[in-house]
Design a protein around this nucleic acid. Structure first.
Length: 523
RNA sequence: GGCGGGGUAGCUCAGCUGGUUAGAGCAUGGGAAUCAUAAUCCCGGGGUCGGGGGUUCGAGUCCCUCCUCCGCUACCA
């Protein structure tokens, strides 16, 4: 039975406009999903939109439309971006869907049955904009003496009946969970933060609201709707068919040896690492395996913000740089988990220096040589020299290096390992100099060209998760059948066969900033 | 204030439990090659490893202290 892997993005709030941060998370998950599929796993990849809450209701009222209309419209923009990014999600969850409402209510009832919900009164300073309560001490004074949240949002005193989740009782269980699973939270710095947060004691959580109605109704008390985190976090099991616990639930949310990975922004790590496991334990449900909190991007050194209006539409970036190029850049530029800066100079440097000059040109230089000198027929290799074996050996050890890096979501390490080999391959071409062998030793020339092709096959297969479009074209040019592009086909047993006719080579990674080639060339 | 993580070549970073002349990529200088998307390859310059003290035969790597940056968290008259 194939191993299972479940990966999720956060659900994106429909009140937001898609920006580079959303694209980043979604791309990271997509690369993970593609990698695991290629490695033979049974993969489920879920993304979607978070559609409830007061802000949506308010926005709808302002525009004179229903909340559902706003949700439909904005949810679609997130779907469109995902499609444009080449995202391979298996499902797209919307929290306004009946299946999700059913799942939330089922989870709620289960918590209730387990004595994990109680009714009380909540009073405090509430900021509509943040959808959060603040302590008196956290507030600051605005220019007119009004009270403001630390985020700058205006607050109002709210007193209302609310259901509560006894989070405070789960402190020990959570600490035990972290102790037993030190990789439950990545990167390590986030683990430390969460651990010390929980160690410092937890307050019970208010999990319902009566002030607005755009949400999942609380079973048995429709005056209340569920408050954001119960609603939002539950999406991860809605997508697996919960409350039906057979089928995908059994497979991707198993009772032992969990397989789920939640990728989230560092701003919501706490909800995923503290609240979510507490809810699940309280409902006697299994847990995810790991939560990874990724960093944030600045743009040209500037923090992205609404007021600056410098958030970039991912569609514009795809248009400008290319889909594969954007995907590659975001995962290559910085160690995953760190913050990064998106700049024209940086992405142009990666595109030209690595994709075009190093990798793309490596393929082009021997493919066009084969086309011109051997009529496009992949030659048969002769005896291998030490140099040949060394290069092929480096290619063949790459898969395990990538697997190890992917276990840690260390995309940058996987890519660095790949590019070490790319550079080695370029060095090999120069040293072997097939253009000189053409006159002195054609047989040896054939072997060199073959080794380069076989090496590039490995590189292309492993690069597929990052740059799916370009590597598909490259594997076409190596005449690798579509069914033979998974990791199972890496290694000598499935090596390229001499004598194959290769299609006319064509660059797969254009330089950025070069004038476009004459139109009409196809592709 | 507490906890945690950083401060290593111009830039971004790697350096596990202390041990040969401190590394990589990019940038920069020089050279080679000409198969290739004027792409590639080789060689070089460049670092008081934040400051100071200490342990050790030996410290970027351990201890103390100070400076500084960041994250989480707490609190205040």
């Amino acid at each position: 039975m194939p191993k299972a892997f479940y990966v999720t993005t956060p659900i994106y709030y429909v009140n937001d406009k898609p920006h580079i941060g959303h694209a980043y998370t979604t791309i990271a998950c997509d690369v993970l999903a593609r990698f695991k599929r290629l490695d033979g796993y049974d993969v489920k990849f879920l993304t979607g939109t978070d559609e409830h809450g007061q802000k949506v209701a308010k926005a709808a009222a302002e525009k004179g439309v229903t909340p559902q209309e706003i949700c439909d419209l904005n949810s679609q923009t997130f779907r469109d971006v995902a499609k444009n990014l080449g995202i391979s999600n298996d499902d797209f969850i919307r929290t306004t869907e009946p299946r999700h409402i059913a799942a939330c209510q089922a989870l709620w009832k289960r918590l209730e049955e387990n004595g994990q919900i109680y009714l009380d009164k909540y009073a405090g300073w509430y900021a509509v904009r943040d959808e959060a309560f603040y302590d008196e001490g956290e507030l600051t004074k605005g220019p007119n003496g009004e009270k403001l949240a630390p985020t700058g949002a205006p607050v109002e005193w709210v007193e209302e009946e609310s259901y509560f989740f006894p989070l405070s009782k789960w402190q020990d269980k959570l600490l035990a969970l972290y102790d037993a699973n030190p990789d439950f939270i990545g990167p390590k710095s986030r683990f430390n933060e969460i651990y010390s947060f929980v160690k410092g004691g937890l307050n019970d959580l208010s999990i319902s609201r009566t002030a607005f109605s755009w949400g999942v109704p609380v079973p048995g008390n429709p005056k209340h709707v569920m408050y954001v985190w119960i609603d939002a976090l539950t999406n991860y099991i809605t997508g697996l068919g919960y409350p039906d616990e057979s089928g995908e639930m059994a497979k991707f949310w198993p009772k032992t040896d969990p397989v789920a990975l939640h990728v989230v922004g560092k701003d919501i790590i706490r909800f995923h690492c503290v609240y979510w496991p507490a809810f699940l334990m309280a409902a006697n449900l299994p847990l995810p395996r790991r939560v990874f909190g990724q960093g944030w991007w600045t743009v040209e050194g500037q923090k992205m913000s609404k007021s600056l209006g410098n958030a970039i539409d991912p569609n514009a970036l795809i248009e400008k740089y290319g889909r594969d190029q954007l995907r590659f850049f975001l995962l290559r530029e910085i160690p995953y988990g760190n913050d990064g800066d998106f700049s024209e100079a940086a992405i142009a440097g990666r595109i030209n220096g690595e994709l075009a000059n190093a990798f793309g040109n490596l393929a082009q230089r021997f493919l066009s040589f084969i086309a011109k000198n051997l009529g496009g027929v992949l030659p048969e290799p002769g005896p291998l020299t030490d140099a040949d074996k060394e290069l092929l050996g480096a290619c063949r050890s790459l898969a395990d290096q990538c697997r190890e890096a992917f276990e840690r979501q260390a995309f940058h390490d996987a890519l660095e390992a790949i590019f070490v080999v790319v550079r080695a391959a370029n060095g090999y071409v120069d040293v072997q100099a097939p253009w000189a062998l053409k006159k002195t030793d054609p047989a040896r020339m054939s072997t060199v060209l073959y080794v380069l092709a076989e090496c590039t096959r490995h590189l292309a297969i492993l690069m597929q998760p990052f740059t799916p479009d370009a590597t598909a074209k490259l594997l076409d040019q190596l005449a690798v059948p579509e069914g033979e592009r998974t990791f199972a086909f890496l290694g000598p047993d499935h090596a390229l066969k001499g004598g194959a006719t290769l299609p006319a080579p064509q660059g797969v990674f254009p330089r950025y900033g070069d004038p476009p080639k004459a139109a009409g060339k196809g592709a």
